[in-house]
Write a protein that binds this DNA or RNA. Structure first.
Lengths: 115, 115
DNA sequence: ATATTGATCAACCAAGAGGTTGATCAATGA
DNA sequence: TCATTGATCAACCTCTTGGTTGATCAATAT
């Protein structure tokens, strides 16, 4: 799989408040589906779908124990996304710093012309 | 606007390869719409729409110069998203470390029982 | 003056996302 | 044994998304 598609899935999964809330809840520890669904004003089915999205993004792992499905976080894709974003930000800000430098230089030069 | 909605827009905007490519191109400097659209195998209109998505996410700023529209990066929302992700990752990994510690302790205890 | 270029707007379309309800199935409890 | 619980599957609905084409409009070039 292309790393781009990977990043797509991760960011898409994260770009939903319900799913982010689920992840946040999971950071407190392994939780079963019904328990995860409880705080939300939507059907169990809807939450189940959200979980599947998180699962295909590999942000979450499922373990079956009897009839219960226990979910746990697997933060690796998150780390990858973070790496990508951080690299981008670095590029951008360095570029902006250069521009900033140029503008300052211009300002300095202009100072003698029209005070 | 709730910061959650803010984060939504940012992550949604980033969760598309075309839009990420546009941002990457913009990291090389201010660019006009037609130029941004050139590498892509889609209509100018389609790219124009992608740009609007980036714009409403405040990841990009538009400046009109004659008939041309010049786009520049505004990385602040990116930084915010990064902050959120980093905070989450910190929570998660710290929790996982605790689990890891427990597992190690269990292993150590088991070592005397069944070698 | 007129043609061309840069870009958006408007209408449309197919596919996907997020939600619903109802059925099903396996595991547990009475 | 039989009812209940935990969860998914299947079908359906509505709204959004990503794309198209054609029209429009302002700015530039010939």
């Amino acid at each position: 799989m292309t790393p781009d598609a990977h990043l797509d899935r991760t960011l898409t999964a994260l770009a939903d408040p319900t799913r982010r809330a689920i992840l946040q809840r999971l950071s407190l520890g392994e939780t079963r589906v019904t328990e995860l669904a409880r705080p939300f004003d939507m059907s169990l089915n809807a939450v189940s779908k959200h979980i599947r999205v998180l699962e295909t993004a590999r942000l979450v792992r499922r373990r079956k124990a009897g009839r219960e499905h226990l979910l746990t976080l697997t933060p690796q894709p998150m780390t990858e996304a973070l790496a990508w974003m951080d690299a981008q930000r670095a590029l951008w800000t360095s570029r902006l710093d250069v521009l900033d430098g140029l503008l300052r230089a211009q300002d300095d030069a202009a100072e003698g012309d029209a005070p």
